[in-house]
Design a protein around this nucleic acid. Structure first.
Length: 303
DNA sequence: ACGATTATTGCGTTCTT
DNA sequence: AAGAAAACAATAATCGT
């Protein structure tokens, strides 16, 4: 890193020719930096794209992960070079400093919050949830931040977990898998974050009632209101079968029993299982258990 | 005592008959 | 529709620091 001259003629990555750019040897095709910068140009201001992200084609100093901005932040100085400037120019620089202080994100927690809120907003939209969920989830996200739960855990996990937790508190029936699928982080990150919040913040959530899912599954399959009522009746009677089992699986079984009893020709068992995102075998298992518990006969009398 | 890693258990899924 | 089996995630137990 002591010479401006490149030691190679072609890019090791794509074989393209090398061009000289601002004291760096850069591949003309893929922008790979072959030779790192050796002339100190001081602070730069050309490293952000419109979104403020740092991805792609970036050349220059070493990335510092320990700083919230990875060490890429630009500071407009207040000393030294101001000497030769006129009063008008000085005021102009002063305005620039002021504007930058507004746009620059000051702390990691603030940056995390902006990112987290963005992700929460995206999730709420993608899952078709009402607006108040966004508000509650953001508040919960902030609580987790204030409680110091986030260091060492996934940021995306907390955003998704905040949405999932809000759904559970408000009985809005979105499964962990559904949220995790739309979310940016993995399901494990979501679970870790949710457990942390549940433990430290004491979320007011009990076990999930399978009947919460029934209306959604019924409408997704285009089945009638009568089927929904029948399925809800099955879920009502059932108590012991559900515990320890996946609520979506139990809900699917209830819907499938109603389907068989009322509109067996309209769609298949596999369709019901698919709508609930469980296997057909699970539906069969739960149904068999319900039969064994005598739940079905109980509903038969009422229907 | 604490955290991390490994064993266990029961459920859901897939494959098969 | 049901039986068997490999797979998975959550929990319990053990180990090492």
């Amino acid at each position: 890193m002591s010479s401006v001259q490149s030691s190679v003629d072609s890019c090791p990555d794509c074989g393209e020719h090398i061009v000289e750019s601002n004291g760096e040897a850069v591949c003309g095709s893929c922008n790979l930096v072959v030779e790192e910068q050796c002339i100190d140009r001081g602070p730069e201001s050309r490293m952000f794209d419109e979104n403020g992200t740092l991805k792609g084609g970036r050349t220059g100093a070493t990335v510092v992960e320990s700083r919230h901005d990875r060490g890429f932040s630009t500071t407009i100085g207040n000393h030294g070079d101001m000497a030769g400037l006129s009063g008008r120019q000085r005021r102009k620089v002063g305005r620039l400093r002021h504007q930058q202080s507004r746009t620059t994100i000051r702390s990691t927690s603030e940056r995390n919050q902006v990112y987290g809120f963005c992700e929460i907003r995206r999730l709420v939209g993608a899952l078709g949830l009402p607006e108040n969920v966004q508000e509650s989830a953001c508040a919960l996200f902030r609580s987790a931040q204030d409680a110091g739960l986030m260091p060492g855990r996934s940021l995306e996990g907390f955003a998704a977990a905040a949405v999932y937790a809000t759904c559970r508190v408000q009985s809005l029936s979105r499964s962990l898998e559904e949220v995790a699928d739309v979310g940016r982080g993995s399901q494990e990150e979501l679970t870790v974050a949710y457990d942390a919040m549940n433990e430290e913040l004491g979320l007011p959530t009990g076990p999930v009632d399978p009947s919460e899912y029934i209306p959604r599954f019924v409408s997704a399959l285009g089945l009638s209101a009568a089927v929904e009522q029948y399925a809800l009746a099955v879920a009502e009677v059932e108590t012991a079968t559900a515990d320890g089992r996946k609520p979506t699986g139990v809900a699917a079984a209830c819907v499938d029993i109603a389907r068989q009893a009322l509109v067996s020709g309209v769609c298949t068992q596999e369709d019901v299982a698919g709508a609930a995102d469980v296997s057909a075998r699970t539906v069969q298992n739960v149904t068999a258990q319900l039969r064994e518990d005598g739940v079905l006969a109980d509903v038969e009398v009422r229907g």
